[in-house]
Design a protein around this nucleic acid. Structure first.
Ligand SMILES: [Zn+2]
Ligand SMILES: [Zn+2]
Ligand SMILES: [Zn+2]
Ligand SMILES: [Zn+2]
Lengths: 159, 159
DNA sequence: ATGATAATGTTATATTATAACGTTTCAATT
DNA sequence: AATTGAAACGTTATAATATAACATTATCAT
């Protein structure tokens, strides 16, 4: 089991640098496979997104970049868009924020548990939920294509 | 069965004024029960939200209000906030837009099917989905409190 | 009528995101 | 190595969504 395949909410005690390193490695590998350029900006944005197991806002990323040189919003949004398209980052619609994908490789939507107290986030890919959605949608004659599932509540540490 | 208790996506063929009228009646009744003021602005915003079975943006509501007199963003956002708190309107996070609640009475989160083609929206309150979420969350030691479930896809008419 | 509370008006500003266009970088081909 | 076409990036401006702060008005309970 790779470090990045940890269970939800299990990486809150530090030693987190390895998450970042792994995310970057996986990203490099995937981009090479798909003949996409993993530029230094894209790498840096991915690192910043992974810097915490919490969603981060685009303008927080921007601030961090600006510590290291000039940067403007499009720089950040372009990198985030790229990383999303590569399935390396998810956007959390209910927070207008971004988080590293816990299961990169194949693009997917995922489901997110977000702690209202400490803001920690865990990504699920629960077939149980997707199936329930699929079946309920079917019953309405609706053909699902993309799902946004964001659950606010209390994480194990805060409940 | 009241008109507002129609099945998902079944009210697309006009005769929709009755939805608005019913939504207003229910709102009046609920506000009276709860000793909240159903002011003319709140009523007008609710009507505008119900004017289509599609999510509407806050600034679209604002434009409509401005046809009828002066209005500024806070007016709209206050009314929308009130209507949300009363469980009469839902905010669709993935669209930054608002839609009338199909099952007003008790506050709830609901689940939304949104057509990517015609933008029609249907609200579900599927225990099947909520249960799947509840169980998956439990397995992570997470205590769910509020859910955002927004499914993009194709409605029966567009698929 | 009086005072307290809630709602609204008004102005300004914060926050999130994209448009438009010129320049640079990079890799493939010659 | 030079050419060149596409992709990425820099830069400026602006769009779109949402809230802060404070003055004014309406409503309700006494
Ligand atoms: Zn993921
Ligand atoms: Zn927590
Ligand atoms: Zn509802
Ligand atoms: Zn449709």
């Amino acid at each position: 089991m790779k470090h990045s395949e940890h269970r939800a909410f299990s990486c809150n005690k530090g030693g987190h640098q390895i998450c970042i390193a792994e995310a970057v490695q996986v990203a490099e590998s995937l981009c090479r496979q798909r003949k996409q350029r993993f530029t230094s900006i894209r790498r840096r944005v991915l690192e910043l997104v992974w810097h915490q197991h919490k969603p981060i806002g685009a303008y927080q990323v921007l601030e961090a970049l600006q510590q290291e040189g000039r940067a403007a919003p499009p720089t950040v949004y372009r990198a985030l868009d790229f990383l999303q398209q590569m399935g390396l980052v998810h956007r959390i619609a209910s927070l207008n924020a971004y988080v590293g994908c816990a299961h990169p490789g194949a693009p997917h939507d995922g489901q997110f548990l977000i702690c209202e107290s400490c803001k920690a986030l865990a990504e699920l890919d629960a077939a149980e939920i997707s199936n329930a959605i699929e079946q309920s949608a079917d019953r309405s004659g609706f053909k699902p294509h993309r799902q946004t599932v964001e659950i606010m509540g209390l994480c194990p540490r805060c409940r």
